[in-house]
Design a protein around this nucleic acid. Structure first.
Length: 216
DNA sequence: GGCCAGGCGGCCC
DNA sequence: GGGCCGCATGGC
């Protein structure tokens, strides 16, 4: 399986090239973006980030002192703005006063204990803001690996993550690029209604094989 | 005009 | 553990 996962990575990298993730410049911006992008199109998040930047609110320390309504106004475009504004401020305060632990699992547990940070957001922060190798699993990851035939769509986050991580060396650069390439494939080919005929993975995908059988 | 987007928490059983 | 609901904008 290790070989398959590396092969899939190679094919995606050759097809799409480096993705230069995370799309953000500072650690704080990555953390803020990770929360804002929950169930939301990145284009809508970018507008929110620009608004926060204009108001000098694109840092955790600024957010701890920010007025919630001001934050709401900045992040309207990102959706769920009342929830996200409140949680952004609370998370900023919690992270500011947190003394980083040497133990990565302890750090992850801390993130998960915060309201507004679930497994995907926690792992995105760990991987993209801190270069700690946790593999990020999202709806795209599940869709692609279940279509490939390796997992079931019903499998939970931790189960999918354990399945992948047991076969890959814990390399944050690899995890970084791999997840970004998965997102790229999901947006361009492996969409809800997939475009298998032009997919670079079609020759090793069970779903693509089955679609071809129907045509023949 | 409906569907979708890089989820999460709070319920309920 | 599994399922349902509310949260909300903007692009297509």
């Amino acid at each position: 399986m290790t070989k398959h996962l590396h092969q899939i990575y190679q094919i995606l990298f050759e097809e799409f090239g480096p993705q230069y993730w995370w799309p953000g410049e500072t650690r704080d911006e990555i953390i803020i973006g990770a929360i804002l992008t929950q169930n939301t199109n990145w284009a809508n998040v970018e507008k929110a980030i620009n608004n926060l930047k204009e108001k000098q609110l694109l840092t955790l320390s600024a957010l701890t002192k920010a007025n919630q309504m001001t934050v709401v106004e900045c992040i309207k475009s990102a959706g769920y703005f009342n929830q996200k504004a409140e949680r952004l401020i609370l998370i900023s305060k919690a992270l500011q006063s947190y003394i980083p632990s040497r133990d990565k699992h302890e750090f992850r547990s801390f993130l998960l204990s915060l309201k507004g940070i679930g497994p995907e957001t926690a792992d995105s922060i760990l991987l993209y803001a801190y270069n700690i190798p946790f593999f990020v699993v999202d709806a795209y990851t599940k869709r692609i690996f279940s279509r490939l035939g390796y997992i079931l769509p019903s499998q939970r986050y931790s189960s999918v993550q354990q399945w992948i991580m047991q076969y890959l060396e814990p390399d944050s650069d690899l995890f970084n690029e791999y997840h970004a390439l998965i997102v790229k494939l999901a947006k361009t080919k492996c969409k809800k209604r997939p475009m298998c005929s032009s997919c670079p993975l079609k020759d090793l995908c069970r779903y693509a094989m089955n679609s071809v059988l129907w045509i023949l």
